[in-house]
Design a protein around this nucleic acid. Structure first.
Lengths: 173, 173
DNA sequence: TGAATTTAGTTACAAATGATACTATCTTGA
DNA sequence: TCAAGATAGTATCATTTGTAACTAAATTCA
């Protein structure tokens, strides 16, 4: 293990030297890849589902039919992977598409009985994976983690629309 | 914004229904992708560097020459992307490879003067991005976040080698 | 010694992904 | 009512990425 996120490089005012092993975007990427890989392998080997197919099932599992557009919003996925996932699920008979009469460009997508069955099997498994990952953390810490992730996402979105990062970000002068 | 990570679905003993918007692996993936995308665009547009090339530069920037194998370990990257990144950097004249006399399969890789110059320009920028992302968080929270990421990585690795998640993970029976 | 195995790094090929363009349908406004 | 956009969803193509096979060099051990 060559990870060292605790040793301060020169903890003082402002950040100091760059060490990849303690660099947040890098750490986030590595951890996310490991977790995603773990989950992806589980879904793939047991149900033949990709992460994207699984996400679509997860939102449809709540019950209400939804257009592809709705799925995009609920999953933060682009419309292309959503389209591909829905088609694959349709071909496997896990979802059903019904063209809307009011707007014939759009279709309502919903789980079939078989899709529902898979959802009911895979959802608890997903929860178990999450529980195992969070094992040892108090509820408060879990919430703290989620809040931190939310904050990071918000900052990233703000920075994406703003352009370059500020040298003195908190000073609003 | 269709994100809801705070509303408890049924906070009690054990986890309850699955909501994608509060599902840790999903959140981790979304946040990581947004952060990575932000950084990737910055490096690509300013320096024409991919994330992988940038990571290689980051570890070589510490000064000591390193084999590709060493870079793999330091960056948690697979040897194939490392090989590709080093070749691209070599072609751009940002790194230099010298075949080892002791083991002629391996080469020591180090930054050229030009590579060093880019490192010195891009490293502070990287730190600024991180600082902006963490803006508003106290030092203690930053450390807490890093520690949580470490813990998640450890659990994910443990689970990957162990196989399926346990139903009652903390009971060691 | 030298055959069998391991390791460093690269190459080649297949699968996944993303950007763009496209079709069909709907909406708007003259 | 019809031309000019806008939108839902799909298809196409180029790039990226991952897996596996490969080459060359080193190591092991009979």
């Amino acid at each position: 293990m060559t990870r060292d996120t605790t040793t301060p490089a020169k903890t003082g005012a402002g950040s100091s030297a760059l060490r990849l092993s303690a660099y947040l975007p890098y750490r986030l990427s590595v951890v996310s890849n490991k977790v995603s890989g773990l989950i992806a392998r589980a879904y793939q080997s047991r149900f033949g589902l990709t992460i994207w197919e699984w996400r679509v099932i997860a939102v449809l599992g709540e019950g209400a039919p939804m257009t592809a557009q709705g799925v995009c919003e609920a999953t933060a996925m682009d419309k292309v992977p959503v389209s591909r996932a829905i088609r694959a699920l349709d071909e496997r008979g896990l979802v059903r598409r019904t063209r809307r009469s009011s707007d014939r460009r759009a279709s309502d997508v919903e789980l079939t009985g078989e899709g529902q069955r898979i959802y009911e099997e895979v959802a608890p498994l997903a929860m178990q994976y999450e529980a195992s990952l969070l094992d040892g953390l108090a509820d408060a810490e879990r919430e703290r983690l989620m809040a931190l992730l939310d904050a990071l996402e918000d900052r990233a979105e703000a920075m994406a629309s703003a352009g370059d990062p500020e040298t003195s970000p908190s000073r609003s002068g």
